[in-house]
């Protein structure tokens, strides 16, 4: 863990703490601006991780791109207002206009400004993806840790339940749930989150199984620590790598799942929208040659998914201690 070679990048080189979904909540609270000076012999785990992350150029670019997109989706609409919510105001507005100076990316089938629509839909896509990913990771982690740590009959029952859940294709489950309980946005978040955690739980469980038998956990238990304490201080902390990595990927999965639901007409309902619903509306117009309703948003969608996956890959590299040079 020591920064033995003096040639390594000095800490201030790492760059600012850029917000990116998935990792923000868990990592940035470690205190990045701590009192680091070149004389420090031991580099903190977090700093070392950042260094590995920063060396991955693709991931770094992805963080910037995502950060830019978040700013664009959440801040730009405050200054540059377009009507995106009132269908009533759209009466008489020309529809499906090609890009022009007035509408940079044209207008869509309801006459909404396409560029503004992308930003507006992005707000839903990103928020929903992030929240659903958060639910996924919280539920999956809790379930996996409890199952793995307690073992025995608890583990058996929980894992069989998980097997049952895993063998229902999750789109089928969501279709059934959405059909029964309706299509409100909070419910969509919960449904997507609650149907995504099965694989996460399995992964975290296998981590917990290993960690609970390691010497430090056993020693802690032998010294009289409560099970809760061991779970919190040892099992949770040591499976953090997997949790953060899987969390990042699950954000991307949630966004994709939401788009699939949007395509089936079960997603976010008009006048609100997300990228999946927009893509669905756009592709219906593809035959007419309205390319501006398909390509910008699909490129953006792909870029976001690819970026999140690159970041996830970089996360895995960070926590893969074997790959670190010391």
């Amino acid at each position: 863990m020591s920064n033995s070679d003096g040639t390594g990048a000095p800490g201030n080189f790492i760059g600012p703490d850029v917000p990116f979904p998935g990792a923000e909540s868990s990592v940035s609270s470690v205190g990045e601006e701590s009192s680091f000076s070149p004389s420090d012999k031991v580099e903190s785990n977090f700093r070392q991780g950042l260094r590995v992350f920063a060396r991955n150029k693709l991931a770094l670019i992805s963080v910037y791109v995502l950060g830019l997109l978040v700013i664009a989706c959440f801040i730009v609409p405050i200054f540059w207002r377009t009507n995106q919510t009132s269908l009533l105001q759209q009466i008489g507005v020309p529809q499906n206009q090609p890009p022009s100076l007035h509408h940079l990316l044209g207008t869509d089938v309801n006459g909404f400004d396409e560029l503004g629509r992308i930003l507006y839909g992005g707000k839903y896509s990103l928020t929903l993806g992030f929240l659903a990913g958060l639910i996924t990771i919280v539920v999956g982690t809790l379930y996996g840790m409890i199952s793995g740590f307690f073992g025995g009959i608890v583990d058996t029952i929980m894992m069989r339940l998980l097997d049952a859940m895993l063998s229902i294709p999750n789109l089928f489950l969501i279709i059934a749930l959405v059909a029964v309980f309706g299509k409100s946005t909070p419910f969509l978040i919960i449904v997507i989150g609650m149907t995504g955690w099965f694989l996460t739980a399995r992964l975290i469980r296998s981590d917990a199984l290993v960690i609970k038998n390691l010497e430090y956990s056993q020693a802690s238990l032998a010294m009289g620590a409560s099970k809760l304490h061991v779970i919190r201080r040892h099992v949770f902390v040591n499976s953090m790598g997997n949790i953060v990595t899987v969390g990042t990927f699950s954000v991307a999965d949630a966004i994709q799942l939401l788009s699939a639901l949007g395509f089936l007409g079960l997603g976010i309902q008009l006048p609100a929208t997300d990228w999946g619903t927009m893509l669905n509306e756009g592709t219906q117009e593809l035959w007419n040659g309205y390319w501006w309703e398909v390509f910008p948003v699909s490129i953006l969608f792909i870029v976001v998914i690819v970026c999140i996956n690159f970041i996830g890959d970089a996360m895995r590299d960070i926590f893969e201690v074997r790959l670190r040079d010391r």
Partner: peptide
């Protein structure tokens, strides 16, 4: 992997 299947299908 990232392209939504319906977009790919329609394209």
């Amino acid at each position: 992997y990232a392209t939504p299947p319906f977009v790919l299908g329609f394209l």
